[in-house]
């Protein structure tokens, strides 16, 4: 197979994800409503109660809405990553996974195509969310929006690969809801998305360590720093390393036999 054929395959997988995404408008709306509620309702109530001191990458005092914006961007990526894996389980149950597996291209490449496609669909939703936030005067630096794109892509790949890995362990669609509760909520709440880590440390040392070790925290910090055109090396290395690790584990644990039908 030639490089052009690999590229054609990638384009095809991405096009299918786009088409499915645009046809599921309710999915797009719900992906936006969730973080907007946090931003416009939850944060509005909390801004008076919670003071955020000057911490990197911020050079001045900021509102609580400004603080949680990167975390909410990553929340979209997290939900989409899990939604992507849900669609893998759905495809497996409905049989359409077999179409993918009948491709003569290597299966690890096909899975990576799916990952990239899911990640790019997530990015569109994040930028739509940032545009709405902009309208409500929650405005990161303009150049930061551009600088954050690679960070958002890496975070999306990390969370999608985690979702793909999880989907390999799920036998039936019905089992997925429980896993979502045990994965999404702990990842989100035990992170720096809603509160700075020093706040967590004030409350409890072990809670702080849980948050500090959470991969989602590093995804949030990577995006937060990038939005302010700064570079967080630790977050970058953790996200990059875990993305590669989760992707490798997802490829190795992928079992095509589950995609077939017994006769």
């Amino acid at each position: 197979m030639t490089a052009a054929q690999y590229l054609n395959c990638l384009q095809g997988v991405m096009q299918r994800e786009w088409l499915r995404f645009f046809q599921q408008r309710s999915r797009f709306l719900s992906a936006l409503v969730r973080p907007l509620l946090w931003l416009l309702v939850f944060a509005a109530g909390f801004r008076a109660a919670l003071g955020v001191s000057i911490i990197p990458p911020y050079s001045t005092y900021i509102t609580y809405e400004t603080y949680i914006l990167p975390g909410l961007c990553c929340m979209i990526l997290l939900f989409n990553g899990m939604q992507g894996s849900l669609s893998m389980v759905y495809d497996r149950e409905m049989g359409s996974m077999r179409v993918l597996l009948m491709s003569p291209l290597p299966r690890p490449f096909l899975l990576l195509c799916k990952l990239l496609a899911t990640a790019l669909v997530s990015l569109i939703q994040v930028y739509a969310f940032l545009a709405i936030a902009w309208c409500f005067d929650i405005r990161p630096p303009l150049w930061g929006l551009l600088a954050a794109a690679p960070a958002l892509l890496l975070a999306a790949l990390l969370l999608s690969s985690l979702g793909l890995l999880l989907s390999n362990g799920i036998r039936q669609l019905e089992n997925f809801a429980g896993v979502m509760n045990f994965v999404i909520f702990p990842l989100f709440f035990l992170s720096s998305a809603l509160y700075p880590l020093w706040k967590m440390r004030e409350s409890s040392e072990w809670l702080y360590w849980l948050c500090a070790l959470n991969p989602f925290t590093h995804a949030v910090e990577l995006v937060r720093f990038a939005l302010y055109q700064q570079f967080n090396l630790t977050a970058l290395l953790v996200c990059l390393g875990l993305w590669l690790l989760f992707s490798l584990a997802a490829v190795l644990t992928f079992n095509p036999q589950r995609a077939a039908v017994r006769g």
Partner: peptide, 14 residues
């Protein structure tokens, strides 16, 4: 669209 997806999976150009 279904056919185009399959064609892409087999590396065919558009």
């Amino acid at each position: 669209q279904n056919l185009a997806y399959h064609a892409a999976l087999h590396g065919l150009s558009r």
